[in-house]
Design a protein around this nucleic acid. Structure first.
Lengths: 155, 155
DNA sequence: CCTTTTTTGACTATCTTTGACCAATAATAT
DNA sequence: ATATTATTGGTCAAAGATAGTCAAAAAAGG
């Protein structure tokens, strides 16, 4: 069990626990130095251990003073969101299914009315597209990305 | 927490807020001195953070008593929205242009952070689409529909 | 063995900082 | 007035600082 990836994972999770803020900022390069490995090893850990399904959110910025931010999501009404996200990965949900889901989020006060309408507009907006084979895939992609935003900016 | 560019940006925005006049005049050289950087760094900040789409106007004059004037545009979000919608009919604005505009609506408190991110996600989400000839048209349609929602549900 | 997970590194993308050279305007000298 | 000089600001491309991607090689599991 003592591989590199696990050590890095543990280290990051320890940092997260210690930090009161609910998130930590690291420098990819520094971290890889600390563990004497290549930088992309850090990406591997992030991709395999800090996924959305596992309740983490990773953001980053390149360039001078860049960073990688790891956020621990507090799950609550959010579990349904994550569940829906997982469903999305599997197949394409019909527009009605998607809308129903959004409406439930709205009823649970997880979405404002305006946010609901915005998202519906996107789902519907694609209808004007005459039968394009990609349509459903596009709809799913957009929906997924929007849901991720909801996870990210939960207030 | 910030790089140079961000610090300068924050500093200028603070000045703008404090100033009752709706604009500020600075000396490029003085500013770069204050932040111990080269003058052109100031131009970088102006070009990336104080664009027209984001609701700022920058004028300047060279030579003795030269200056750089930064003005916060005060069109109401509603009217700029309508104006932007009209522009949309003509041709498609580049993604950067569109995002800048949304950012402005956010700074003017017409959009919440979450709404901003949702809409950005839609604009970016289409990037994952490999070159589809319809991509730009779709982007424009979705953007238009979302903007209409904003007009409708204006609180 | 064969499969899955981990580790590495070469190549790429993005954002920032710097510097050398250019352009415009005002102030001053003739 | 005109020419000259001092004072500003502008442009652009290169260098620097991070982070991301992808696929091959290596290691671990079964």
């Amino acid at each position: 069990m003592g591989n590199l990836a696990n050590s890095i994972e543990d280290y990051l999770k320890r940092l997260l626990t210690l930090s009161g803020a609910g998130y930590i900022d690291i420098k990819r390069k520094e971290l890889s130095n600390k563990f004497s490995c290549v930088p992309s090893q850090v990406n591997y850990v992030l991709e395999t251990r800090f996924t959305l399904e596992k309740g983490y959110l990773v953001e980053s910025k390149r360039g001078g003073r860049g960073y990688v931010r790891i956020k621990k999501l507090k799950l609550s009404p959010r579990s349904s969101l994550i569940h829906f996200l997982r469903e999305l990965e599997g197949g394409l949900p019909g527009e009605e299914h998607a809308k129903g889901f959004l409406y439930r989020l709205y009823e649970d006060r997880f979405l404002s009315l305006r946010e609901l309408r915005l998202m519906e507009a996107v789902l519907e907006g694609l209808d004007t597209l005459e039968e394009n084979p990609l349509k459903n895939k596009i709809r799913r992609d957009l929906l997924r990305q929007m849901l991720v935003v909801l996870l990210k900016f939960d207030y």
